[in-house]
Amino acid sequence: MTSAAASKRPRLITLSVALGLLLAGSIIFAVTFGPADIAPLEVWQTIAHHLGLIADSPVGRLRNAIIWELRLPRVLVAAGVGAGLALCGAVMQALTRNPLADPYLLGLSSGASLGAVAFLLAGAALYMPIGAFLGAAGAMLLTLLVTRLLGGATPSRAILAGIAISSLAAAATSFLIFWSATGDSYREILSWLMGSLSGSVWSDAGIVIVATLFVGLPVLLSGRSLDAFVFGDAAAATLGVDVARLRWLLLAATALLTGVLVSIGGAIGFVGLIVPHIVRLVTGSRHRLLLPISMLVGASFMIWTDTAARSLFAPRELPVGIITALIGAPIFLLVLLRYRRAT
């Protein structure tokens, strides 16, 4: 009976194993993309060697350095950023019961950019993630406040508020850059602002992955409580959920994670919006399934969009945010239309 009941939805374990394998494969194959020709086997040998799985690697020193120092950190940063953004998007959609919520559309990413740039230009580059977190949290609070001033939470009001806060933060960021940045740093900051993972190193990968797992684990465990929100706050409360506490906790968690992700990868849009929507088509809205699967899909998705960003017009590189926007904006419109028709 149990298996019959569950058979309509894929099981968490089956999906995670399949998508985990896809992610592992994506990591290895994405590393092979680039100016130097590298075979998947070499990637595997290099990783296995560094993990101590094989004693001697047949891969030469130069190729080893390209794989291990140049390409792998970037691919891992992409995976962490994708997983984190997808998680933030799914959580915000559930908490605000707004199918269009995502860290980018609600202004968190722009706020984070502003915070990060302010800290950077003030000479506190080391503390950029803190600035980004403060910026993200501030922007989120402002968006929520403006949404309320507009007459209460509906998806379109929240988006309008998000756009207003986003534009404000972007203007402030441009102003800061205009006043303080010099030629070289100017170009670098601009490309980062549009969302770019170029120049990622191991410490970036470490920060992104630790933050995503550190924030992700408690969020994944609160998945069932998020389910209780589908019929509103009152319904969640009568199912035993401490609505106010959970909401603040999770909003703080998403602000924190968005801050870290933006300080490393810039404001990469739409990933948090589209990945959960696509995953929901398969898993439905149960968050115990939706959240981990969105993270896995987000990781692979980001790896390939970033690979496209650095390979499509090689040797020139596109900011990956442009590619995610190209893919994401049409899907955003579809979701918007579907939502308008449903209400």
Binding site: A5, K8, R9, R224, S225, V230, L239, G240, R280
Partner: peptide, 15 residues
């Protein structure tokens, strides 16, 4: 707008 099946909705009662 919940994308839940009928059974999943009833399962919420077990939370």
């Amino acid at each position: 707008e919940a994308q839940l099946t009928a059974r999943e909705v009833v399962m919420l009662g077990r939370i």
